[in-house]
Design a protein around this nucleic acid. Structure first.
Lengths: 147, 147
DNA sequence: TGCTATTACTTGATGACCTCAAGCAATAAA
DNA sequence: TTTATTGCTTGAGGTCATCAAGTAATAGCA
């Protein structure tokens, strides 16, 4: 199993390649839905829960003014809706519309390369990958972020 | 170890989160070097070997005309050099300059979050992650792409 | 209460990114 | 040679991304 142990540089290289592959699959799927990668990424964040403009900017690690434009374009397509917060009239919560939800699901379903690759793993491999990624990128351990 | 087995949807979600985390770390490191993520990604591809404009476009999954602009800007900073191919005068091979190599290495070294996370893994975990990523995204199995 | 931050969001300017359509030069195919 | 293909660049048009500046609402404090 543990073949020869990769150096850290090799691991970094592989991470770069992996994310390159994932990104390609993702943006192709997004393009199929007529969306840019940034737009699709934004929808993905909102799939979990609505978020304010500020929260989106933080999550997506970009300037708030950038979010204004992205949400403008998503709203123009009825994939998303701005709702003024009832508790703080400065903040606008961005909510996915039903069409937006469908779009996210469609994009994820269309990531054929990634799906095919995951299908090739057995349960133990999937659990291991999930766990390792969680430890590396999310600081978690179990499938539910078991602290 | 194999805790409860994650569903495919959970795995997809985690891949998205992981990608997000990696990308954030990467583009921050690139910004430290005064480069955009696309420019840094291009330099990274060239770190392995020189490539023609066409090859870069294919690898980065974008239009060839896009590469023209990116390489223009990299060349303006002496990080990269265009060399007319001796065998086909249409193609231009893009080669990393010494400054370009230094820059790639500096960016990779500055990915603190990722480095810290990898440091927290033991040898077996690293080997497992390397192997799993290879199978999912590169269709390979061992540290050397053992076919 | 009223004054002063601070915060959330938007706008406008500027530059990079990205795609498409069109064009030129060099090579390949007929 | 004639024709097609390939590699790259240019230009138009739209998105992405940041910064600086502005408006509106909230929070902190005398």
């Amino acid at each position: 199993m543990a073949e020869t142990i990769p150096t850290k540089a090799q691991l970094m290289e592989r991470l770069a390649d992996s994310f390159s592959g994932y990104y390609g699959d993702f943006s192709l799927a997004a393009a199929d839905a007529g969306l840019s990668a940034s737009q699709a990424k934004t929808l993905g964040v909102l799939r979990a829960a609505p978020a304010s403009m500020r929260a989106l900017a933080t999550t997506l690690a970009c300037d708030a003014s950038n979010i204004t434009g992205i949400v403008d374009r998503l709203e123009k397509r009825d994939l998303v809706r701005r709702e003024v917060s009832p508790t703080d009239r400065r903040v606008k919560n961005v909510v996915l519309t039903p069409a937006g939800e469908e779009t996210v699901d469609a994009i994820r379903a269309r990531m054929h390369t990634t799906h095919a690759a995951l299908d090739a793993l057995d349960d133990a491999d999937r659990a291991a990958l999930y766990d390792l990624l969680g430890r590396v990128f999310c600081g978690s351990r179990g499938p539910r972020g078991t602290a």
